[in-house]
Simulated scan of single mutants.
Amino acid sequence: MASSPSSDAVGRFLTLADTAEILNLTVAEIRGLVDSGELPAIRLGGSWRVERVVLESYIEAKYEESRRMSLWQQSDFANIPELSGGTILRSDH
Rank of each mutant, 00 (worst) to 15 (best):
M1V: 07
M1Q: 12
A2N: 04
A2H: 05
A2C: 03
S4F: 01
S6Y: 02
S6C: 04
S6W: 00
S6K: 11
D8F: 00
A9R: 10
A9E: 12
V10D: 00
V10M: 04
V10P: 00
R12W: 00
R12D: 07
R12F: 02
F13P: 03
F13C: 06
F13G: 04
L14H: 05
L14R: 14
T15F: 02
T15V: 07
L16V: 08
L16Y: 01
L16D: 01
L16C: 10
L16W: 00
A17S: 02
D18Q: 12
D18P: 03
D18Y: 05
T19K: 10
A20F: 00
E21D: 01
I22A: 04
I22Q: 03
L23V: 05
L23T: 04
L23N: 04
N24P: 01
N24C: 09
N24W: 01
L25G: 02
L25M: 10
T26S: 14
T26E: 02
V27D: 06
A28F: 01
A28H: 04
E29N: 13
I30V: 11
R31S: 11
R31A: 12
R31V: 09
G32E: 08
V34K: 15
V34G: 02
V34S: 06
S36C: 13
S36G: 13
G37V: 08
G37A: 04
L39R: 15
L39C: 07
L39M: 11
P40E: 09
P40D: 13
A41Q: 10
I42V: 15
I42E: 11
I42N: 06
I42R: 08
L44P: 01
G45R: 15
G46F: 12
S47G: 05
S47Y: 07
W48I: 09
R49I: 00
R49Q: 02
V50R: 12
V50Y: 11
E51H: 08
V53I: 10
V54L: 10
L55D: 06
S57R: 15
S57A: 15
Y58S: 12
I59A: 14
I59P: 09
I59F: 03
E60P: 02
A61F: 03
A61D: 07
A61P: 05
K62F: 00
Y63Q: 14
Y63T: 15
E65V: 13
E65C: 07
S66G: 10
S66C: 13
R67P: 01
R67Q: 08
M69Y: 07
M69Q: 07
S70K: 05
S70A: 08
L71N: 03
W72T: 04
Q74F: 01
Q74G: 07
S75L: 09
S75C: 08
S75Y: 02
S75I: 11
D76G: 12
F77G: 05
F77Y: 11
A78V: 12
N79G: 05
N79A: 08
N79Q: 08
P81A: 09
E82R: 14
E82H: 11
L83F: 11
L83A: 08
S84V: 00
S84L: 12
S84P: 00
G85T: 09
G85N: 12
G86T: 13
T87V: 11
I88S: 04
I88N: 07
I88V: 13
I88Q: 06
L89M: 11
R90Q: 09
S91K: 15
D92P: 02
D92G: 03
D92R: 11
